[in-house]
């Protein structure tokens, strides 16, 4: 039985992943903003076999609560083996172009709040000498594009932070996993026209779960995004800047 903390536990991808942990008999500590929704998810996970499920309502932008939240999770679960950070929003790129307040708000939610959480989590795992830190980033962080570069910036910063953390914690035997999904059919993307490249949250959850089991560092989900992004990253900037992406 592992002890698992999930921040952003009401996310569709996180919920699907939590079911895999529950099915494996792991204990869970779920954090998101809405207590009723957390309650519905917690019930489900208990029925599916999780021996213990605790919840805490917290806004990830309330940085002052991060340390206490993590400590409470460790105390209530009696330890912590896996931390999955999943919360996020999809910024309105056009609105961000009009207002830096908007951009700042998005960077707080999608980047700074995560760096804050990682700071305290790294501390715990380093002392413990084992465990997994997994963060939902995105393929959008691999290259800046006009359609969503605020989101991309946040994810890219998280990626570099995770790289450094991985480097720091590898001696302590800690897995630091950067998760880069492509297009996933979730409430976040409800307004998009879905096509062949779209994956279901369950599929992405399966990939996250097995990347944790296999102690991976970076994972693209589904796997073909590794190749799509390799192609996109190989386009010279001179050409890329003229493309409508």
């Amino acid at each position: 039985m592992r002890k698992v903390l999930i921040v952003g536990a009401t996310s569709a991808i996180a919920e699907a992943t939590a079911r895999l942990f529950a099915g494996n008999g792991d204990a869970l500590y779920l954090v998101a903003r809405n207590q009723d929704r957390l309650g519905a998810i917690a019930n489900d996970l208990r029925v599916r076999g999780a021996p213990q499920v605790e919840t805490e309502a917290m806004d990830a932008n309330d940085f002052s609560r991060h340390r206490a939240m993590i400590e409470t999770a460790i105390v209530t679960l009696g330890g912590l083996d896996v931390a999955l950070i999943a919360h996020g929003t999809l910024p309105d790129q056009k609105a961000c172009e009009q207002s830096f307040d908007e951009t700042l708000k998005e960077l707080q939610t999608n980047c700074l709040s995560i760096l804050s959480l990682l700071t305290y989590l790294a501390d715990h795992f380093e002392r413990q000498g084992s465990g997994t830190i997994a963060v939902l980033s995105s393929v959008a962080g691999d290259r800046g594009r006009q359609s969503n570069y605020v989101y991309g910036t946040a994810k890219a910063a998280v990626n570099v932070f995770l790289q450094g953390l991985r480097n720091r914690l590898s001696r302590a035997n800690i897995q630091v996993l950067t998760i880069k999904p492509g297009f996933v059919d979730t409430p976040m993307t409800a307004g998009f026209q879905k096509g062949l490249l779209w994956a279901k949250p369950e599929k992405v959850a399966g990939g996250i779960y097995s990347a944790i089991q296999r102690k991976k560092d970076v994972v693209y989900l589904p796997w073909f995004w590794r190749f799509i992004m390799a192609v996109i990253n190989s386009i010279p900037e001179r050409l890329f800047k003229k493309m409508k992406l």
Partner: peptide, 9 residues
């Protein structure tokens, strides 16, 4: 379909 949680068994 998104209402897919178990409540009690």
């Amino acid at each position: 379909r998104g209402l897919d949680r178990l409540i009690a068994f």
